[in-house]
Structures are given as structure tokens and as C-alpha cells.
Simulated assay, not measured.
Amino acid sequence: MDGTTNGLDVDSLDDPYRAAKDIFAGTVGGIAQVLVGQPFDTTKVRIQSAPPGTYSSAVDVVRKLLQLEGPLAFYKGTLTPLIGIGAVVSVQFGVNEYMKRFFNKRNNGDKMTMQQFFISGSVSGLANSFLASPIEHIRIRLQTQTVGPKVFTGPIDVIQKLYKQGGIRLIYRGLGATLLRESIGAGSYFLTFEALVQRDMDKYHKPRKEVESWKNCLYGGLAGYAMWLSIYPVDVLKSNLQADNYKNPKFKTYADSARFIFQKYGIRGFFKGFITTLLRAAPANAATFVAFEETMRLLG
């Protein structure tokens, strides 16, 4: 034995501060994800939710944002995700680590199966959906405001106006799609990363803390690809619902949103912004996992 079980230090299984360390490291990972990924995310949301003919491509979005709104437009709505996604990712990683410890104890030291890695990630995704859904809704409202009079002045204004119009139900619009997206996406996400890390540990007979940072970076990027490849059309449906006019919505249901997208764009409409998302997936998720793993190493 090398003192680890599925990449978890044996001593960490009984560490009374383990959960707090997981949450803190997850918060650091979430902040890194937002800072690296926000420009890509703003571009993606604009493409997904803009009226037909507004943008011809991701490059067109970037060009128009720079010309009409300036470079800071790529960071519209950043305060909400910077705080919120830090919390979301801390929950996501914290729950995933908890589930890994649960399965390690249940397996009596035997290696976790790929199915168990997927279940751990899936549970973490379900847990963070209740934070992610309203945070993403607020961010999308701010990201989709273009030049001209602003409907919302900031995150608090979004919350107040949504609540006044439709209460908590409206703030949580898109929760169903978020739960579906996160349960499948987070399962794929953590399964991919953990499978790659385990393969590296087994091949070179080393503990998790000795897996090189550049490899964690690579594995994190690949995990991001796996996540988005598994759930992207669901994200498009969610974004359309959350970007819809909140006072006089065109879409009452997910079926309405899907019907509109298909009629306007065909099947390819469910993959609007996909290239931008894949471009974002590698750096944003590489930063997330490296920040998490390095923070965990520093915390011990």
C-alpha cells in the first residue's frame, strides 16, 4: 500500500477538518473557474439566447461586444458568479469528496468502481443545482443586456424584479433543466477526472499528491469536455428559458423552448455556442481542478 485509497490519503479519512478543507479548496477552484471562463461564458450565452440574425458566429459576438460595449462587457454579471460559483463549486467538490470517502469506507479499502465515481459526481451535481440555478439565472439576465437602456442595474436589482414579478418560482426558473444537466454532467465530469488520475497513479505507482500539476491541468480540461459533450442541448434549453422576457415570456415550458429552437434553427440550434463552450471548457476546468488539487495539497 502507498498510504492512499483511490487517491485519498488514508489519514484524511479521519481528519475532523476534512469537510472544511474540501469546501475551501472548492471555493478557490470556483473562483479560478469564473476568472478564466467568464469571457467565454458571456459569448456562449449571447449566442444561445440572442434573436435570430443578431450574431453570425462567436467571432461576431466578440467583435460586436468590443465595438459596442468595450472589453469589460465580457465580465458582465461577474460579481454574482464570482461569489456564487465559488459557493457552487465548493458544494460540488465538497459533496463529491464526501461521497468518495463514503464509498471508500463501504468498499473496505478496495478501489472505487467507475460507476461509484459517476454516482459521486452525480450526487454532487444534484446538490449544487439549488445554488447554481438562481445564480446562473441572474448572470444570464445581466449577460444578455446589450447597449441601450438597462432593464437591470445589477444582481440585487435582478433578484428584486424577478421576485416582484413571480416570486421564488421565477427566480428558480430553469431548475428542472439544471438538475438534469448537473446530475449527468457532474457525473461525467468527475468520472473522467478521477479515472484519468487513477490510471496515472496505477501506471506510475505514485500517490495522488505526486501527480504532476500539468497532468491535473490536462485531466481537468478533458473532464470539462466530457461534461459538455454529455449535456449541452439541455444547457441551451435552460439558457433560452432564463433569458426569456420575464414579464411576458414566450416559453411557458421546456417543450415551448425546444419547439422554438427547432423551428428556427433545426437540430443545430441545440448546439448554438458549442464551439465557444468547448474552447472555454479546457482552460476553465483545468484552472478549477489545478486550483482545487493544489489548495488541497497546501492544506494537507
Rank of each mutant, 00 (worst) to 15 (best):
K238R: 12
K250Y: 02
D256I: 07
L68W: 08
Q143D: 03
L65S: 15
A255D: 09
S49M: 05
Y163E: 10
M99Q: 14
F190G: 04
M1V: 11
G84W: 03
L131S: 02
K105I: 11
L218K: 06
F271P: 14
I267N: 08
F40E: 07
G224F: 13
K44P: 00
A127L: 06
Q67T: 10
L170V: 10
E194G: 01
G176I: 00
L131D: 04
F130A: 01
W228I: 02
F292Y: 14
P52L: 11
P81S: 00
G121I: 01
L222F: 06
G30R: 12
L162T: 03
K100F: 04
P283V: 00
Q143F: 01
F40C: 03
L229D: 12
T253F: 13
P71Y: 06
Q165F: 02
L180D: 02
I184W: 09
S213M: 15
E293V: 06
C217N: 13
S129E: 12
R297G: 01
D14R: 15
K76R: 12
L126K: 03
I156F: 14
E194F: 07
S57Y: 05
G53Y: 07
M296G: 00
F117N: 14
S257W: 00
P51S: 11
Y254V: 10
L196H: 14
G273P: 13
H137S: 03
G154C: 06
L278D: 09
L237C: 06
A25Y: 03
K252A: 08
S239H: 03
D110K: 13
F292Q: 10
D60K: 08
Q92Y: 13
N128F: 13
Q48M: 12
A186N: 15
A291Q: 09
L66E: 14
S90A: 15
D110N: 14
V147H: 07
T153C: 02
L8G: 01
E294P: 13
N108D: 11
E194Q: 11
T113S: 15
K105L: 12
R199E: 15
N240Q: 08
G176K: 07
G148Y: 04
G86V: 07
L126A: 14
P233I: 01
W214S: 14
N104Q: 12
D9P: 00
A291D: 04
E136C: 01
Y75E: 02
G273W: 07
I23D: 01
G30D: 05
A87R: 00
F24E: 04
V59Q: 15
E210K: 12
T144V: 03
T4W: 06
K150E: 07
G37Y: 13
G30Y: 06
D22F: 09
N107M: 02
E212D: 15
A32P: 00
I159D: 05
S129N: 06
S124E: 13
L180P: 01
R173F: 05
V28H: 10
A32S: 09
F274G: 04
K206P: 05
I85T: 13
T54D: 11
Y265V: 12
T276E: 14
N104G: 04
G3F: 08
D41V: 11
L68M: 10
T146Y: 14
I156C: 05
A127I: 02
S188L: 11
L72M: 08
V89T: 15
G269N: 03
G187V: 05
I156W: 12
A284M: 08
K250H: 09
